[in-house]
């Protein structure tokens, strides 16, 4: 499946991905100013930039083929869509126990306590188009692709 991949060598740590992630999941999908100024409680970004010195990258849910979060979920709220491959969390059934956080090998699930406690995570912006974070990365450091940018000898997580 197509996933969002980070190319750390070109991540400039601007965090526009986080900003546009918030926009994508706000009630104002096309207006940053409204999304930030009118929404009183902004949910957290579902992509997180990590930075230390010159190294930085943005990471969000890997939508694992064999997702630990799904298998660990105590309520069955966390699911993998068998058609699209997207791992998603059913808000209504999520009780914010954070078992998925303890299970995710990428640290990609985020506590959302803006209203009811729930686990928040990347939903690939609905999968209809290129996710907002990728579209708005100014330096090509995020790609939406079937192919990962790094070849690694060992398998990663799941």
């Amino acid at each position: 499946m197509k996933r969002v991949y980070a190319k750390e060598e070109y991540c400039i740590g601007c965090r526009l991905c986080e900003i546009y992630c918030i926009l994508s999941h706000s009630e104002y999908k096309n207006d940053l100013i409204k999304a930030f100024k009118k929404s009183l409680q902004r949910p957290p970004a579902r992509i997180q930039v990590e930075e230390e010195g010159a190294l930085s990258f943005a990471l969000q849910c890997r939508h694992c083929d064999e997702a630990y979060c799904v298998k660990s979920c105590i309520t069955g709220a966390m699911q993998k869509d068998p058609e699209t491959g997207v791992v998603f969390n059913e808000k209504e059934r999520c009780v914010g126990c954070w078992t998925c956080i303890a299970a995710c090998p990428y640290g990609a699930i985020i506590k959302d306590e803006t209203s009811k406690k729930i686990a928040s995570k990347c939903d690939l912006c609905g999968q209809n188009e290129t996710p907002y974070c990728v579209q708005n990365c100014p330096n090509g450091a995020l790609i939406f692709s079937e192919e990962p940018p790094y070849k690694t000898s060992v398998k990663g997580g799941e």
Partner: peptide, 14 residues
């Protein structure tokens, strides 16, 4: 100020 959303991209980029 009516446009600034305090996202701090400018802070990080300068």
């Amino acid at each position: 100020e009516s446009r600034c959303i305090d996202c701090q991209v400018c802070v990080r980029q300068c």
